[in-house]
Simulated assay, not measured.
Amino acid sequence: MTHARQPLVDALKVLAAQCIVWHHLSAYGPLSDALWTQAPALADALYDHARKAVQVFLVVGGFLAAGTLLRATDGRLLRTAVLQRYRRLVPPFLVAMALAAGMATLLHPWLSDDLRLQSATPGTWLAHALLLHDIVEVPAIAAGAWYVAIDFQLYALVAGLAWIATQLAPAPRRNALALALLIGCIAVSLLHVNRHPDLDLWALYFIGSYGLGVLAAQAVRGPRWPWSMAIVAIGAAALAVEWRDRIALSLGVAVLLAGWARPGTPRPASTDPASLAPRSQASGVASKWARGWAARLTAALAAGMATWADRSYALFLTHYSMVLVGNAALARWPMLAAHAWALAAACWGASLLLAWAFERAVERPLARRLR
């Protein structure tokens, strides 16, 4: 993909990250019980529907990974890309897990059993470092740890398909073969594997959504119409076999991305006759002033979205520590139950602040050192 910002992608990442934070606030400990007591319909919606934002991350992840993986024509480049992905994901992940473990230890007297640290042995840390904690049945240190492992599995799987293409096809046909292999995996996933929740430890369970994101990126590069129709056809077939809300959401996000023009693509000059009509000097000045302010507002909004999109991984990694703090505060001061939603909002705000600090002090420096 182009290095230019993708405003739609930024907006999706920001929105999905906030949904995950609120889902976990509605899912863990006595704070979640208090939220359900005061506003059961809203708490139920956050618990049941906000977690589906994971599908947005899956599709966006595939969309962003496509350019690196499917356009590589050398196996060594693919191995390097996978290693770089591990370096991008795991070091900040381990720091965030250490933060969550430290917070759980510090707040242990006030945490309910479902929030207490279950294991902190060297084996626990090794399993997390290798992203095998779910596979070897090691209790996760923090909520959402499973997704980091799945993200890496998905990236490695698509890289593996691209590597197979480099071994079997001449350079001009490698991209086509890699896409064909990927579509086969998408079909197997959506038509069979994704219908069996006990297989959700593996990339093949999620490759349907991730792969739709890759195909959306292919549509953006063109030809747009055939690839968009392919996405719709694959998604419709999967939903016809068995309706799944999460797959319907993945399909919607993929179609949205496939139909979104690349940021920075110049628009043709207007041929609207009204735009060619002479204007008075006053109306021209007013119109220019309005366009200027609209452009500034749009640029400011896009810049804000880009900033928080860059912090979405930090927010995803660190917000669980603030979920622990909120639940410990409620256990320590039970009168806060009457203000559970205000407490949850405070935890959300604190999570945003922590993500800002984590991205600046941990994630960004680690990325520079491990590049």
Rank of each mutant, 00 (worst) to 15 (best):
K13I: 01
K13T: 00
V14Y: 04
V14D: 03
V14A: 04
V14G: 02
V14C: 05
L15D: 08
L15Y: 07
A16D: 15
A17F: 01
Q18L: 15
Q18W: 05
C19F: 13
I20L: 08
I20C: 06
I20S: 13
I20Y: 07
V21Y: 01
V21Q: 11
W22D: 11
H23T: 10
H24C: 02
S26P: 03
A27R: 15
A27W: 12
Y28D: 05
G29H: 11
P30G: 09
S32D: 10
D33M: 04
D33Y: 05
D33V: 01
A34F: 10
L35I: 00
W36G: 09
T37K: 15
A39W: 07
A39R: 11
P40F: 03
P40T: 02
A41D: 09
L42G: 12
L42W: 09
A43L: 15
D44H: 11
L46H: 13
Y47A: 13
H49V: 08
H49L: 04
A50G: 10
A50L: 09
A53S: 13
A53F: 06
A53L: 03
Q55C: 13
F57T: 02
F57Y: 01
F57R: 06
L58P: 02
V59E: 10
V60Q: 14
V60M: 13
V60R: 14
V60G: 11
G62F: 08
F63P: 07
A65H: 10
A65D: 10
A65Q: 09
A66I: 06
G67E: 01
T68G: 11
L70T: 13
R71N: 14
R71L: 02
A72W: 12
A72M: 11
G75V: 00
G75A: 01
R76A: 05
R76W: 03
L78M: 00
R79Q: 06
R79P: 01
T80S: 15
T80H: 14
V82T: 08
L83N: 12
L83K: 13
Q84T: 00
R85Y: 09
R85A: 06
R85H: 06
R87I: 04
R88A: 08
R88C: 03
V90K: 05
P91F: 01
P92L: 00
P92V: 00
L94G: 03
L94P: 11
V95G: 05
M97Q: 05
M97K: 09
M97Y: 00
A98R: 02
A101L: 01
A101T: 00
M103I: 02
M103K: 00
T105P: 00
T105L: 09
L107A: 01
H108I: 06
H108F: 13
H108G: 14
P109T: 13
W110L: 05
L111Y: 01
L111D: 00
